[in-house]
Design a protein around this nucleic acid. Structure first.
Lengths: 107, 107
DNA sequence: TCATAATATCAACATATCTTGATATATTAT
DNA sequence: ATAATATATCAAGATATGTTGATATTATGA
């Protein structure tokens, strides 16, 4: 699949749009944190995060068994504009509930 | 469905991306022209054009039984950026083959 | 080494989207 | 009015995508 369609299809899901908005606000978070906040099972979140990463929106910083996902920077023009649109959406995001207790890593 | 997701899902199909690129270049065309150029059946093109119209990318100017589709102007920032991305794609577009012989309408 | 925790991946099912052929609607010409 | 043309819409099947529970992988600590 070409890059543009991969980018677009990464955006084409409500859960992924909400994940982008959430990570945009609450910075690097691991899957278990998102699991706690979104109340979704781990495999579901892991899959969506992979699609957002492959789509060029997210980066992952590994820290032992944890993987911290955050908005990739810099984004290109199209992805930046998409993120700007997402910021404007009235998304009903869950409250942040961090459970990861990682002293070793500073992200 | 919210506007952003409707916009994104309108872009999330190879045929529609090619239609946008084609109409961007070859200006107002009716379904039968596109049918001739793309070699696709009428109902398929009609459906995709409707999705692009509902997604805010296209306008239609009716002229008797003909409907002339063209890029809507002005587009907002996100749609403009999407179209810019599409212009950069190496799409294998068919050659233009106009069959509509409409003297009455000037578009 | 073994157990535990975090994450990734897989298979099966559910859901959504696309394609096609048939049909409906609308306009024009005879 | 009837026929022909352009387009839109629908139903059915094919394809793609999302969800879930189970399992695999990897890193850490006892």
């Amino acid at each position: 699949m070409n890059v543009f369609l991969e980018t677009v299809s990464a955006l084409n899901d409500e859960t992924r749009v909400k994940l982008l908005a959430f990570l945009d606000t609450h910075g690097p978070l691991c899957v278990c944190d998102l699991q706690e906040s979104f109340g979704m099972i781990q495999s579901r979140l892991s899959r969506h995060l992979k699609i957002l990463k492959d789509g060029g929106f997210l980066r992952v910083d590994r820290c032992g068994t944890w993987g911290y996902y955050s908005i990739r920077s810099p984004l290109d023009r199209f992805r930046t504009e998409a993120l700007a649109e997402i910021r404007c959406l009235q998304l009903e995001l869950p409250p942040l509930k961090k459970i990861s207790q990682n002293e070793g890593c500073t992200l």
